[in-house]
Simulated scan of single mutants.
Amino acid sequence: MQPDTKRMDMTFSRAILFSLILAKASALTNSHIAVSSPDYCYDPYRWCGPKYWQATFQYCTSDFMESQSPVILNPFHMMRNRSMGPLELLAYDVLQSEPWIIKNIRDTIAVEFNPGMYLGGANLPRSYYTFYMAFHWGSETTNGSEHIYNDRRYPMEMQIFHLVPPYQTLNEAAFTERQAVAVLAVFVDIGPEDNPVFETISRAVPTIPLAGDEKFIDPFPLRDLLPNDTSKFYQYTGSLTFPECLYAVEWIVFQEPIYISQKQYNRFIGTVYYHEPEEGEEPRLLLQNYRPTQALFDRILIASANAAVPMFSSSHSLVASLLAVLLTSLVSLLLPRMT
């Protein structure tokens, strides 16, 4: 009896397809980005909101020693460093061959990258591998960037997280050593047209509405999603902006924003949900998922050679500058009398 080659081919094809499905499922379950704790939220009026985080998470206390993020990019605290080298975005222009994972992790949408991209240069103490990116947004009527620049909170902020090898989670790295995490922060503004690069992410968002939902997306050169001019940025030392709020983070915030359309933004504010234990299975839209700005204390914002340093960007800057002038004048008057 001759073998049924057609049936054998179909069986073989199904076996290959099944293997690919299993491989993809395995890859998804191997994601290093966990769904965030239900013990915190961003609602300022609920027990789990940002002003109550320190009651549950001790490192979320903002004080002189535990410098927290995000911050206002206040020119009174800026110092230009003309000798600082450029950022090094190694393999950011390379199209990775394997798909990325996009995941609803309850407090944001995260995109996990494959190995191969690295960050260095500027004032960074070492080289970091590129781990994943996440987003913070507002609502229909409010903006939602975490950092504030020139008195403005942008509609959205994109943050790209980097770790020092061999760490594989943010908390593991930040708990173990200082400066083990580096974050690139990109302001996202609303423009008249779709951003064709961002569309890959935006289109996938409505398909992962609930915490834990995830899927594959096609990769793209990550450099295509950054501002055109990456030489303009501000660098400072701070913390993670979500619990555990660990303060082991080197922040680099780009001056120039990128642009997406209103339609692309609406997919974030209209289709992403999270759960709280007492709410059962009733979903609630994830809105305004940003932490309020924290005090700078004595920290300095290092401005790159090409970055703008505004004269004044807030009334706080003006008051602080006037106080500094008055204090200097007072000291100069008192010194002759003291000698």
Rank of each mutant, 00 (worst) to 15 (best):
S231M: 11
Y118V: 11
D189F: 01
G121K: 03
Y234D: 08
G212T: 04
V253G: 00
F187H: 10
R153G: 09
Q255G: 01
L240V: 08
T200D: 09
T207A: 12
T130Y: 07
H136L: 04
E177M: 10
N123C: 13
R126T: 12
G212A: 03
T207H: 12
F175L: 15
A122F: 07
H136N: 14
P165C: 10
A185F: 04
S127V: 14
G212V: 02
F220T: 04
L184D: 02
G144W: 02
G212C: 06
E250Q: 12
F187K: 03
M133A: 08
F131W: 12
N171D: 14
M133H: 14
E199Q: 15
H147V: 01
I190M: 07
V249A: 11
P165F: 10
K232T: 14
N143I: 00
F161M: 11
F175M: 14
V164T: 10
M117A: 14
P243Q: 08
Y118R: 15
N228A: 11
P227E: 06
Y128H: 04
T169N: 12
Y132Q: 05
I190R: 00
F175K: 12
M158L: 15
F254M: 13
P221E: 12
D229T: 08
A185V: 08
S145A: 15
Y118P: 05
N195R: 02
L210E: 12
E256S: 13
F220E: 13
A182S: 14
N150V: 07
I201W: 09
N195G: 03
A182Q: 07
Q159C: 14
R153A: 08
D151C: 12
E140G: 08
D224E: 10
Y247A: 15
M117Y: 07
N228D: 10
D224N: 13
E177T: 13
P166R: 06
G238L: 05
Q235G: 04
F220M: 10
E250T: 01
W137A: 02
H136C: 10
E199K: 13
E250N: 14
R153H: 06
M117R: 13
L124V: 04
R203D: 14
V181R: 09
Y154P: 07
Y132E: 07
H147Q: 03
F233W: 06
N150H: 03
P125W: 01
F242I: 13
V164N: 02
R152Q: 10
N143E: 00
S145Q: 09
F131Q: 11
P155H: 01
T169R: 13
F216E: 14
A180W: 06
F131K: 12
A122L: 04
A134M: 12
S231R: 11
F198K: 00
E256C: 07
